[in-house]
Write a protein that binds this DNA or RNA. Structure first.
Lengths: 211, 211
DNA sequence: CCATATATTGACAGTGACTCCTATTTAGGA
DNA sequence: TCCTAAATAGGAGTCACTGTCAATATATGG
């Protein structure tokens, strides 16, 4: 998500035509630079071994500025994790599919439509999440939010209240199964493999939990 | 989570035939004191508003000592979260039950056998987890470990490999459903209610995810 | 084109969690 | 009782993060 011409993507919906605003453009560029250098350094020297000051220096801004763009060091990696894109895709799935199948279809679509650069970016972050406890923990917490959003979407699709226990259980189970598949015990982390694993996890879910 | 000998934690109140060693006893007492004062202060002044120094002073030890007993401030609250007790109970469930039903039975048993003091203690922590982002995130991460352990138990019970995707999916789905129930959108947090919610969540899981 | 309101920034001075090192005490065994 | 190993207090240092302030850059109305 970071590189190239993605000015409008950050805050507002794609519906509004791109609105330059020279100030905004500079901001987007700074943000992208910080993030790009941060990820590069994390990859090269490790997360804990890279200080905010290092990142700031590499991106040619002051530490203060770093924190104006990202509330915490974690957030540099965090941003954009389990995307809105996926959830949007999920919303657009045909009404007929039950939640698990719909999720599966949405994942396939998103994964297919992702270009190479984004995919590598995702892998990069995935490795960090696996490896760095603070980031992993933070990601898990973000997933709580994802469960809520997922519940809302499922509720829409099935005409129930988002608070309905059944709905929340399904949402939780889906996310839980995905995470568990992502875990892969002794984590290898190949991109396609990860997707494969998650897809197969949902396939299992489709056929129930009986064992 | 690293080094071996922190099993003193389990030595709560049970009048287990004490294994003196005057030194050990002192250690256990210090640990307990730190933790007790910490939780008391967290409740009274809030987690972020209570410094390690505050806790150390209340427990009459030096800050250095605090960190020798608990690797991080988080760990004072963390300890004992989604108990080994539950997992032990799960192991002892009759072979005939499928994983979800077994888990449900285990939860009921543990909840029933818990005495009032422990229950209050749990509530206390639960509130902290809900409220304090760092703690909540950390707890979510601990849950990853719980999923793995759960997977191992399910594997034992069903005669499969712990790495089996089906097994892991079930484990993940169970934990995911429980968390989702725990979430309760606008979280109230009554003890019995929380248990009720989780029980009903597993009940839903039993009957499949179709909706 | 200028003047003024508004945003963005860098420098600086905290605070608090955590690490590492050292000197001193204290428990338990010889 | 003395010797050793562990436990402790204390201090110095790092780093993430916060808040404040003044300097500068940009947008905008006149």
């Amino acid at each position: 998500m970071s590189s190239g011409a993605d000015d409008a993507r950050t805050a507002h919906r794609p519906s509004a035509p791109a609105r330059p605003g020279l100030r905004e453009r500079k901001k987007a560029k700074t943000r992208a630079a910080i993030q790009r250098h941060a990820l590069r350094l994390f990859k090269k020297r490790g997360y804990d071994e890279t200080t905010v000051e290092d990142i700031a220096e590499a991106a040619e801004v002051s530490p203060s500025t770093f924190f104006r763009y990202f509330p915490t060091k974690e957030d540099v990696v965090m941003y954009d994790v389990f995307d809105p894109v996926l959830l949007a895709s999920l919303r657009s799935q045909p009404r007929g599919l039950d939640p698990v199948r719909a999720m599966r279809a949405a994942m396939r679509q998103v994964f297919r439509d992702m270009d190479e650069e984004d995919r590598e970016d995702l892998l990069e972050r995935e490795a960090l999440f696996r490896l760095v406890p603070d980031l992993r923990a933070r990601m898990m917490d973000e997933l709580l939010r994802t469960v809520s959003v997922l519940a809302r979407i499922i509720a829409e699709r099935t005409g129930r209240r988002a608070g309905d226990l059944g709905v929340r259980v399904v949402a939780g189970a889906i996310i839980g199964a995905l995470i568990s598949a992502w875990l892969t015990e002794e984590g290898e982390s190949l991109g396609v493999d990860t997707y494969r694993g998650m897809d197969r996890a949902l396939e299992k879910l489709e056929s129930g939990l009986s064992l």
